[in-house]
Design a protein around this nucleic acid. Structure first.
Lengths: 206, 206
DNA sequence: TATTATAACGACATTAATGTCGTTTTACAA
DNA sequence: TTGTAAAACGACATTAATGTCGTTATAATA
């Protein structure tokens, strides 16, 4: 039963497909992307592609899973490095290492929204969405609630609700970013408003 | 049922199609809806349907246009009735007549997002989206800026940016509402948070 | 009542994407 | 080398939706 090709080879090929597919999804979006697009981009035949992924959904979920892993690793890193202040931790979580608002948006974000919104009538897809939401929620809520425990943040507002509102706002930004010209979204400025709001709601000194 | 015209019959038939199509879009979403669905729901033949709308996009845009008209009428009504305070006006604009957060969401909202997000690579669709965004922006910004002029609102923050952030947040709510269970979106509570934020940002007395 | 313009119909050709399967190729073990 | 398991291939059958067009039915008109 020994395989005819090495495990590395299989993983390399899979990785190549995933990488190519990611680019395709970024370019065409989830719905418009076809397996043919991926075949061409990854330079693989139809049969070859289906050997690794049984359909577009399977492929996209693989991409999501890969990226979630990376994200989790980064978060762990974050938690190990920064404990100076929960405020800084929160900003790092929202904006990444720089802790500063920027005009950058994950290029796959739009396809992501598309994936979940067009699949909203599918129970499986809904469950998946909720899982990811809960995960993100916990991430934010944990930081905020810890900050409230420590006295760094006010607890006038429920930490969980603030966490939810952060997610809502970021989702709104991703959505608008996907559709509208940069001049309208004003990603950076709106992110600053978000910070301003959090400062007020959590009564952060600094 | 009604050959060789009579303007009323034509309009009635068109209206029937639009109404049926609206229900279909609500049920299946924009992408999954097919002309066959609409034919069945409106009890009209393929040829009959295409006599009124040349494709799904055309049909959906007709629905959007119809609804925009209604919305504009309501807004005009609002402006003529309420000028007591800009704060009330703003709340009416956001939440409707009740001026109160609720758990209700336009049932077509999800298809709407879908329409724009899946069509984001089409220039025509983008232009359309931007037009509607500008329209909504102006609506909010006008109220806020008038309130700032009158001294009712603080002008520490740019009225336009606050207007943009309102839209962003509402878009985020619509998106999350489309995908997640009610228990996670907590529409009403999050809307209350939005009010709280606006109160702070605009330094509303009351 | 007869005429006629055209709304409504539905069969059909077209297009496009999907997933399968029999065949070919190839990497590895023997 | 050589034999072989299975990776990779690509043709193909299938499915599904689209928009068109020739035909049919009928409301308005004279």
């Amino acid at each position: 039963m020994s395989p005819k090709v090495s495990k590395e080879h299989l993983e390399q090929r899979r990785a190549k497909i995933v990488e190519a597919a990611t680019q395709v999804f970024i370019e065409h979006g989830y719905e418009r992307t076809t397996m043919k697009h991926v075949m061409d981009a990854a330079d693989v035949s139809r049969g070859g592609l289906y050997q690794y992924f049984s359909n577009k959904e399977d492929l996209f979920e693989a991409i999501l899973a890969d990226r979630l892993l990376i994200d989790v690793a980064k978060t762990d890193q974050l938690l190990k490095e920064k404990v100076e202040s929960y405020w800084d931790l929160l900003l790092s979580r929202i904006f990444g290492e720089s802790k500063e608002p920027s005009d950058h948006m994950d290029p796959l974000a739009a396809s992501n929204l598309e994936f979940f919104i067009t699949g909203r009538n599918d129970q499986r897809r809904r469950n998946y969405a909720q899982e990811r939401y809960s995960f993100a929620l916990k991430l934010y809520a944990n930081i905020i609630e810890a900050g409230q425990q420590s006295g760094e943040f006010s607890n006038k507002q429920s930490g969980e609700m603030i966490a939810r509102s952060i997610i809502t706002f970021i989702d709104g930004l991703a959505l608008d970013h996907a559709i509208l010209p940069k001049e309208d979204v004003k990603l950076k400025e709106q992110s600053s408003l978000l910070i301003e709001y959090l400062r007020l709601a959590l009564e952060v000194k600094n």
